[in-house]
C-alpha cells in the first residue's frame, strides 16, 4: 500500500506539490488526471526518488515504511517501479544486458540469488511475446533508435520482468497509436494480480477505456482536488478541467 501524506515539494523557489494526500491500496488501480503543469510527473518522480526535488514536508509510505530517505535504487528493490514518460537512451548497452543487470541488482539488494541465464532468457521471451516486442530489439542498445511506441513497450516489459509492488505509469499512452495503447494495456491488465498496485498518470480518458481504474483522482495546483470512481474520468472527458482549475485558484 502506498500512502502519500501532506506532501509539499519544491524545485528551486517554485512550489510544485502543495500538501498532497493520496492512498493507493494493495491491488488497487488508481488514475491521476489533471491538466498540464499541475505536478503529476513531479509526484511520480518524488515517489521514485529522483534527486532534483526538495521535499519541504510530508511523507511517502510504502507498506507503512517512509521511503523518502531511500535512494532510487533502494526504492526500486522495495518494489517501486516508474514507467517513464520519456524513457532514456543508454547507448552501447544491449537491452538484454541492461535488463539482466537491473533484475539482478534488485535481487542482490533483497538478498536473493541472481537469476540464471536460461531462466532469465525464458522470462524475457515470455514478456516480450506478450507485448509484441521482437527478439532483435532486445539485442540493440536500450531505447537507442527505438520509436516512441517501442520505448514505452520496453518500459512495460521491464515492469513485467521486475514484478513491482507499486507500478507508476507516467503518461504511458502519450505518443502511442490506438493499437499500441491496446497492446500496452493488455500487458498491464495481465499484471493486475494479487497485491500489485498501479498509479496511472494521464491527460486523457482514452487509456482508461483499456485499463479500467478502481479510483480516479483529479489533480490541480499540486494537490488532489477530487476523488471518484471510473465514471469521474468520463465526466472530465466531457467537461474538461476548467472547473477544477478555477475552483482551486479561487480558494
Amino acid at each position: 500500500m502506498l500512502e502519500v501524506k501532506n506532501l509539499t515539494v519544491s524545485i528551486g523557489d517554485r512550489k510544485i506539490l502543495d500538501g498532497l494526500n493520496l492512498t493507493v491500496k494493495d491491488g488497487e488501480v488508481a488514475a491521476i488526471m489533471g491538466p498540464n503543469g499541475t505536478g503529476k510527473s513531479t509526484l511520480s518522480y518524488v515517489i521514485a526518488g529522483k534527486p532534483d526535488y526538495t521535499v519541504e514536508s510530508g511523507e511517502v509510505l510504502l507498506d507503512g515504511e517512509n521511503i523518502l530517505e531511500m535512494g532510487a535504487d533502494e526504492r526500486a528493490a522495495k518494489g517501486v517501479f516508474l514507467a517513464f514518460q520519456y524513457p532514456v537512451e543508454i547507448p552501447g548497452v544491449a537491452t538484454m544486458t541492461f535488463l539482466k543487470a537491473a533484475l539482478n541488482a534488485q535481487r542482490r539488494q533483497r538478498g536473493e540469488d541472481e537469476m540464471t541465464t536460461p531462466a532469465f532468457a525464458k522470462k524475457v521471451r515470455e514478456a516480450a511475446e506478450l507485448l509484441g516486442i521482437k527478439n532483435e530489439i532486445l539485442k540493440r542498445p536500450l531505447n537507442v533508435g527505438f520509436s516512441g511506441g517501442e520505448k514505452k513497450r520496453m518500459d512495460i516489459l521491464q515492469m513485467a520482468l521486475l514484478e513491482p509492488a507499486m507500478a507508476i505509469l507516467d503518461e504511458t499512452d502519450s505518443g502511442l497509436d490506438i493499437d499500441a495503447i491496446r497492446i500496452v494495456a493488455e500487458g498491464v491488465n495481465k499484471l493486475r494480480t494479487g497485491k500489485r498496485s498501479f498509479l496511472l498518470i494521464t491527460h486523457y480518458q482514452r487509456l482508461l477505456n483499456y485499463i479500467v481504474p478502481d479510483t480516479v483522482h483529479v489533480m490541480a495546483q499540486g494537490k488532489i482536488v477530487r476523488t471518484g470512481g471510473k465514471e469521474l474520468a468520463l465526466e472530465l472527458e466531457k467537461n474538461g478541467y476548467r472547473d477544477f482549475v478555477t475552483a482551486t485558484a479561487a480558494e
Binding site: 535504487d73 526500486a76 528493490a77 517513464f84 548497452v93 541492461f98 543487470a101 537491473a102 541488482a105
Partner: peptide
C-alpha cells in the same frame, strides 16, 4: 540516465559503470 538506471535497481556506481561500458 543515472536516475533511469537507478529506478531500475542499479546503484549509482553500477549505473555509471554500465553507461561507461556502453560508451
Amino acid at each position: 540516465q543515472l536516475f533511469y538506471c537507478m529506478q531500475r535497481g542499479l546503484s549509482g556506481e553500477e549505473a555509471t559503470a554500465l553507461i561507461v561500458n556502453g560508451f
